[in-house]
Each structure stands twice: as C-alpha cells, then as structure tokens.
Design a protein around this nucleic acid. Structure first.
Length: 506
RNA sequence: GGCCCGUUCGUCUAAGGGCUAGGACACCACCCUUUCACGGUGGUGAUACGGGUUCGAAUCCCGUACGGGCUACCA
C-alpha cells in the first residue's frame, strides 16, 4: 500500500502558489493511480510565522481543485494528529536519542553569537560561513563544553537547540525518482538545527519523524529541497534505517520570468500565482487567485499537470480521470518550467469551449450577478452560454459577451453603421421594424429568410444591412449570429432596439 | 564563493544512437464569414559551445558557458 504525503507551511507571505498545487497534484495522481493514500500535513512549527485561517484556505483551494486528501487536519485519518504543534512532544525524544548515539549535540549559542560568528568568518572566498565541522569546535556546544557544564546548562533551562553532527567525510546518496542517483559529500553540509530553542522541530527532524510514524512510502517535494536531502537521508539512517526510508521525488521548479515563480512576478506581469484569492493578514494586501480570475478548476489542473510532465503523445487536454490514468513519475522532467500565462489562458479557453452550458451555468450566473444582471430563466441562460462560450477565455468574459441578451445596450457604437448609411437603408429598416412585428414563427432561421428576402426586394446586399442590424441589437461589432440573438431577446425587444437606433440615426 | 540541479523554436515540450528534429501556445499570412470568435491551410522559429566515443550523436562521456536552487533556531 502506497502512502504519499504532502506538507504545507502556511506563511505570512501566504497563498497557495502554482508549484504548491502541482506538488499536491502529482502526489494525488500517484496515490490514486496506485490505489494509495494521499495525506496532507500542516507545518506549523514556527508559531511566529503561522497565519490564522491559512490552513482552511489551503484546504479550500484543494477542494476547489478536486484534490481532497484522504487524511488531513481538517479531514481526519488514523495517523493524526496532522498538525506539527500537536505532535511537539514526539520530536524531542528522537532528537535526544540522536544526541545519545553521538549523531547530534546540544548547542547553546545565542542568536547574537551566531551572527557574530558569521561576520567573523565571512570572506570573499566564503561569503556565508556555516555552522559546520570546521566551526563547531569553536562554538558553545556539548562537543566543546565539559560534561558538567552541559548538565548544568540543561538543568538551568538555558536556551539551546539540538544540531545534527554531520560526519567528517562520508558520501551520502539516494535514488531520486526523477533524477536518479544523487550524491553529497557530508563534509560540505552544515550541522542543521533539528530541534529549536522553543522545543519545536525544524522541517528536517519533523519530516523524517512524521514520515516514519505515518508510514509514508513516497515523498514528493520541490527541487529547492534537494540540498537538504542528505540531512534527511542521514536522519533516516540513524533513526529508523535506510531500508524504511520513503522514495523521494524532487519536482522541478515552476519558474517566473526571472527564476523561481514568486508572488511579485504575478503582480508585476499581471497574472495570478495563487490558486485562490489570498489576503495578507498583516498588510491586508489582496492577491488575486486563478479561481477569481475566472479559471475553471479542470483547466487549472490541466495546465499545471502539463508544466513538467506529458504522456509522450501530442495530447494536451486531460481531465482528472485521464491524468490519473496516464500519469507516471518516470515522465516528469528534471528541468524547471517557465510559466506561460498565455498558454494557461488557452487551456481555460479550451475547457470553456468543451464544457456543456449547464456545467458553466452557476459560474456564469455569478459573473452576471456581480454586474447586476439577474437571470431567472436557466434554459435561456444555457442557450446564451452555448452561443457565446467559444468567445470566452476567462469566466468574466461572459459578461461582455452576453450582457446584450439580458439588457438593452446602453452605449451603441454607431460608427460602423454611419460609414455606409443612407436614406435607402433607413427606409429598409423602418420597414423591417414594422415587418418583424408580423413574423409568426420567431425563430432564427425564419427571421434570416425573411430579412434576406426583404433585403433582396430592396436591392440591398445582405452584407450591407446585416452589420447595421447587429449594431442595433448588440451595440457593436461583436457577438454570435444576429438572428440567434434576435430569437433569444424576443420580438418586442428586437423591434424596440431597431427603432431606438433608427431614432439615433435620424 | 561553495554545494546541488538543469540546458531542443520566444514559451511548454516530442524524438531514449539512424527519415527533411514533430506538436502546442504566441506571432504573421491566407481561407471560411454579417461582426467578434470558432475552425481550416500555410509560414517565421530550436538541439548553448568545444572536444571525444561511433559507420552514424539532440540522444552516451568529458570540459566550458549559461540558467536556476540551496547556503536561517523558514519551510
């Protein structure tokens, strides 16, 4: 039985970004494909950074995407608790065990002493000195202090952390599901903090302890974690045995125009980077999400899945079911992918075109409602959606594309009519205005036949009178077939709009 | 600086030693057309560079360059 987990750290900068959702998606697809469990964990190890409501926000985003986890803080499961703060006691025991075995040590250095150390050892050759094997013997820790001092400090509750003691010269490697064998020289990795002074674990300790306790078999995360993988491998080796370590997959990064995609990029280039709207609780700053921008969750998932993976064919449109079927970790790329908003919009457009009107109904209702257009007739709304959906890339486009079905156009662009307007056409439309009143069967085809026949009688080419008719009905040069529009807005309204524009032209 | 990862059209990618390096987005042209779209046809456009290995390299190896990530008591 496979168990895949994903972890989230709600942070003040907030928001569930593209890379995050894609990681969840790949976790989800892998778990579902192999009949496994898909577990969501919440990293709230740093209370100063934890944001109230962020947990529910993440869950809401995943729900919108259709990625509801089997186990999570908000969803239950038998391996809980799933919040790190609720598991605090478990971690210290493991950290102490490492100290006993000689794989970790207590460090009493204050934050000030650490910055001092970094300043002192900083040089052009080494711009960022680390707490590593070359430095640790000059610091205040249980390796340099006497046993009595250490015992005294501990009994006096002197603030301290527990650091891993990286071996002097060892090669640590593992097989990444995407990259194959990856090796690190332990001499070049620093002594990472495992347990913080407040008693909370760091990610490094928590991820290993939790994965063991929750019987995780596969762990996917972003490529930015690769450099700390040797720490995790070592912890598995010391604590639970390498043979029980989950299989790792380090997913390629999603890049913005300059490096790792950030919230800033979204603001700068005008595209969303979060799944759903996120308001920074500190600044009150709102960052628009894909949902609010008008993306369909199916399209969002589709575009995300293809950012770093493909099935080897030329197929690009995948439903969640098709993804689950076709997905395989072997075909996930190792290189980062630059996010292209134009292509993202194309995916949405495709999904809107392919959607049946009734599945779009509530979303469109919502868009129109926001513009104070209430539609009570859902059969009518479905017909309208069917007519205009191929012209809509994002959900809000439905307003511009369909408002004239529900309200008389306010601003009418007369320039296309005026260009070729004359008395002849004026007379013709006067006649049509009256003639339409006598049409029995108010259907698009019949209207078209009637209109074109009348035009022929007046020796007018259909092309010369169709554009004016369109402008009269919709207010500009856009929209679906004019007779379809006329049919849906009805006889009275059609005649009204023709007469109104005629008056404007007089 | 050190370590790690990566590199095929502008972007996402296909091709796993063997046809003129294929598709999609974007862009351009044309066709369709009552407008705007949809659709259709075509076009511009790529194997970072240098060495090997091989009959043959986008593909395997080495080096260089470039890009990215990490280098916190953040994840």
């Amino acid at each position: 039985m496979k168990r895949v987990r994903v972890r989230f750290a709600p942070s003040p900068t907030g928001g569930l970004h593209l890379g995050g959702v894609r990681t969840v998606l790949y976790n989800y697809l892998f778990a579902k494909k192999h009949g496994g469990d898909f577990v969501l964990r919440i990293e709230d190890t740093d209370q100063s950074r934890f944001v109230d409501g962020a947990e529910k926000y993440i869950f809401d985003c995943l729900q919108w995407c259709g990625l509801v986890p089997d186990e999570s803080p908000l969803h239950g499961g038998e391996y809980g608790p799933y919040r790190q703060s609720e598991r605090k006691e478990m971690y210290r025991a493991y950290a102490e065990k490492l100290v006993e075995k000689g794989h970790a040590y207590y460090a009493f250095d204050t934050p000030e002493e650490l910055t001092e150390m970094r300043e002192k050892f900083k040089s052009d050759a080494n711009p960022s000195p680390q707490y590593d094997r070359s430095i640790r013997m000059r610091m205040k820790n249980s390796l340099t202090l006497s046993e009595e001092e250490v015992t005294r400090f501990l009994s006096e509750d002197m603030p301290h952390v527990i650091r891993i003691k990286m071996p002097e010269n060892e090669s640590v490697g593992f097989v990444d599901m995407i990259r194959g064998e990856v090796h690190f020289d332990t001499a070049l990795v620093d002594d990472k903090v495992l347990l913080k002074a407040d008693g909370m674990p760091t990610y490094h300790l928590a991820v290993v302890v939790d994965d063991h306790l929750m019987k995780i078999t596969h762990a996917f995360r972003g490529e930015e974690w690769l450099p700390s993988a040797p720490v995790h491998v070592l912890l598995w080796k010391y604590l639970f045995g390498l043979e029980k370590m989950p299989q790792w997959a380090h997913l390629p990064l999603i890049l913005g125009p300059n490096g790792k995609l950030s919230k800033r990029d979204g603001a700068k280039y005008g595209f969303p980077v979060f799944a759903m709207n996120w308001t920074d609780p500190k600044t009150g700053e709102l960052t628009e999400g894909f949902r609010e921008k008008g993306f369909l969750p199916e399209a969002f998932i589709n575009l995300l899945a293809l950012l770093g993976w493909n099935d080897g064919s030329e197929k690009e449109l995948f439903s969640m079911e098709e993804l689950t079927e076709a997905f395989s970790m072997e075909r996930v790329h190792s290189g980062g992918a630059k996010f292209d908003y134009e292509k993202a919009k194309w995916f949405n457009h495709e999904w809107i075109k392919a959607a049946r009107p009734e599945t779009l109904r509530s979303e469109v209702e919502c868009v129109l409602d926001g513009k104070n257009i209430k539609v009570s007739d859902s059969a009518l709304l479905d017909k309208v959606i069917g007519l205009v959906k191929e012209r809509c890339t994002l959900l809000p486009d439905f307003y511009e594309q369909s408002k004239f079905f529900f309200e008389t156009p306010k601003d009418i662009d007369l320039t296309p009519i005026k260009a070729k307007w004359d008395q002849d056409k004026g007379n013709f439309f006067e006649l049509i205005g009256k003639g339409f009143g006598d049409v029995q069967n108010w259907k698009a085809v019949d209207l078209e036949t009637y209109f074109k026949q009348k035009a022929a009688e007046h020796k007018l080419k259909p092309g010369d009178v169709l554009l004016p008719l369109r402008v009269m009905l919709v207010g500009g040069k856009f929209g679906p077939g004019v007779f379809e529009i006329a049919e849906l807005i009805g006889k009275e309204e059609t005649i009204l709009r023709i007469k109104h524009v005629l008056k404007l032209l007089a």
